[in-house]
């Protein structure tokens, strides 16, 4: 009895925070989705399940989702490959290697906001140093997402590097030795031995980077504000924009519910898809 009371007392602070800002918030999210407000937010009326079907079946939600997925596609594979490249290059016994490791890890010290300002210097449409590189131009609806993605890739590079390097260091030397004795050259050894052993680490990173891509906000807010012509309005950015306007709070809530389910589907999909290909990479 005493033990139980102690336990509840210890859990209480966390439970209160979660109770209000997670569980009650989820309830409130669903409730707001059934309601609509007037322009000033003073009155609220029930609009029912129709708001759900309208929003989740509508163009805005679909576009937001599509742009979010585009962002995943542009950031995750490239970020992962670059992180592995940096880690493999820096996992070596050389004089001064520590300097290079520090440089490669250094972008963990930047927040998304700082990284976005750094890339604003490079790619902002009026005076950016690389503004004429069409592939990442923030001025065109087809390339702006890639410009934003580049900023994210760079910002996540430090984290990816640190984690892959730790993974490389965990590969047992005997295994590599054995592969060498079997006549494996460095390249074959990397693809046949190191990479399969690294696969749990890489899976972890795929999940983390995908989550980051789904959450992307600051880089869009700073670099494009969702433009041009809404071409970088991810789901999260749309939710943010709609949430600040009383009249569209209900819509924003429904999109939040949509994001809820998308998150679950993505998590499940990643689990099912990648789980079985991990680790025992012998095809």
């Amino acid at each position: 009895m005493r033990e139980a009371l102690t336990a509840y007392a210890m859990l209480a602070p966390s439970l209160i925070v979660f109770g209000v800002f997670f569980f009650y918030a989820l309830y409130e999210l669903g409730r707001l989705g059934f309601h609509e407000r007037n322009r000033t937010g003073t009155r609220e009326r029930w609009v029912g399940v129709e708001q759900y079907t309208d929003v989740l079946g509508g163009d805005a939600f679909r576009d937001g989702l599509f742009i979010t997925l585009q962002f995943v596609v542009w950031t995750v594979p490239a970020g992962l490959v670059l992180g592995v490249l940096l880690a493999v290059a820096a996992h070596r016994r050389l004089k001064g290697i520590r300097f290079f490791q520090t440089v490669f890890a250094s972008t963990v010290a930047t927040s998304v906001a700082v990284a976005s300002v750094i890339f604003f210097v490079l790619i902002n449409p009026s005076v950016g140093y690389l503004r004429e590189v069409d592939f990442i131009s923030l001025e065109s609806t087809s390339s702006a997402i890639r410009g934003v993605a580049l900023s994210s890739i760079w910002q996540n590079l430090g984290l990816t590097f640190i984690i892959v390097l730790a993974g490389l260091q965990a590969v047992p030397d005997e295994v590599l030795e054995a592969a060498t004795l079997d006549g494996y050259g460095p390249i074959r050894r990397f693809f046949r031995v190191t990479l399969p052993l690294l696969s749990p680490t890489l899976l972890f990173l795929v999940v983390v980077l995908t989550v980051f891509a789904f959450q992307a906000f600051a880089q869009i807010d700073i670099l494009t504000q969702g433009g041009p012509a809404g071409s970088t309005e991810t789901l999260v950015f749309k939710i943010f924009r709609l949430a600040l306007e009383p009249r569209t709070v209900g819509e924003a809530a429904v999109m939040g519910v949509g994001l809820f389910f998308v998150t679950l589907v993505v998590a499940l999909g990643q689990f099912l898809l990648i789980e079985r290909r991990v680790h025992y990479g012998d095809r």
Binding site: F18, F214, I239
Partner: peptide
């Protein structure tokens, strides 16, 4: 506790602004 880890804060952004 585990449940709170399943969702990013972006999902509950709207109601939390309200709260």
């Amino acid at each position: 506790f585990i449940a709170t880890l399943m969702l990013p804060i972006e999902v509950t952004l709207v109601p939390n602004i309200e709260i």
